[in-house]
């Protein structure tokens, strides 16, 4: 089945094949939403699970993402014209004082792999930029990454800033990064914690559907 072929080529990171199969699927009158959900997202889900189990590693996730984006390039205009929307919107960044971005980029890939629109604020991001972005974009989720024990306290600072500006209840906050733990996340009042990019994507979907 063509959707199966899309999923398999995506998992293998074969961007050209994904493009070919997506075009073929559209020609065969399969709806863009079905191609997205049961072809592309399906493939990324499998990669996500395998990544969680260490069966595939960072490079495989990145090349699968590249293949997904190749497919999305073809699909996006059609999705737009049919009014298909992403299932939710997320803002993601690495907090102030921290320059690490590889983990954040992986989370972004996995969120997009679930059909969530993801706006990346970059690294070393201060609270005023985040507050402004939350006000401007009105996201469902705010993802905060901190890779050092010395910078993770800023996640707490952001949550406090959201409270002060009366934005806390308008967005779900997820935290992550090597030194971050479930216990710490609870302590600072985050809505969720995940130990890896794939779990983060699953949690994000959960938080979005709960919030509806």
């Amino acid at each position: 089945m063509i959707l199966e072929s899309i999923s398999l080529s995506l998992q293998k990171g074969k961007a050209q094949d994904v493009k070919t199969f997506v075009k073929e699927a559209l020609d065969n009158k399969i709806t863009p939403k079905e191609i997205l959900d049961n072809g592309l997202i399906q493939g990324m889900n499998i990669i996500g699970e395998k990544f969680k189990n260490n069966e595939v590693f960072v490079p495989e996730v990145l090349i699968a993402a590249r293949a997904m984006n190749a497919g999305l390039e073809i699909l996006r205009p059609v999705l737009l014209s049919e009014g298909v929307k992403p299932i939710g919107k997320a803002l993601i960044c690495t907090v102030k004082g921290d320059l690490h971005d590889i983990g954040k980029n992986l989370v972004k890939i996995m969120l997009e792999g679930k059909g969530i629109e993801c706006i990346d604020l970059g690294v070393d991001v201060a609270e005023d930029i985040i507050i402004k972005a939350v006000q401007e974009h009105n996201p469902d989720i705010l993802c905060l990454s901190a890779l050092l024990t010395t910078t993770m306290n800023y996640q707490r600072v952001i949550i406090e800033a959201l409270k002060k500006t009366n934005l806390r209840n308008s967005v779900k906050v997820m935290v992550g990064g090597a030194p971050v733990t479930e216990k710490y996340a609870k302590e600072i009042g985050a809505d969720g914690y995940s130990p890896d990019a794939a779990s983060a994507a699953n949690l994000a979907v959960q938080l979005i559907t709960e919030g509806v």
Binding site: V58, P59, L99, H100, D101
Partner: peptide, 18 residues
């Protein structure tokens, strides 16, 4: 040379995981 947030390093880093 700072490596975090360095695209050259990141590209090598991914490739060299094999």
């Amino acid at each position: 040379i700072e490596l975090s947030n360095n695209q050259v390093f990141t590209n090598y880093f991914i490739e060299n995981m094999f």
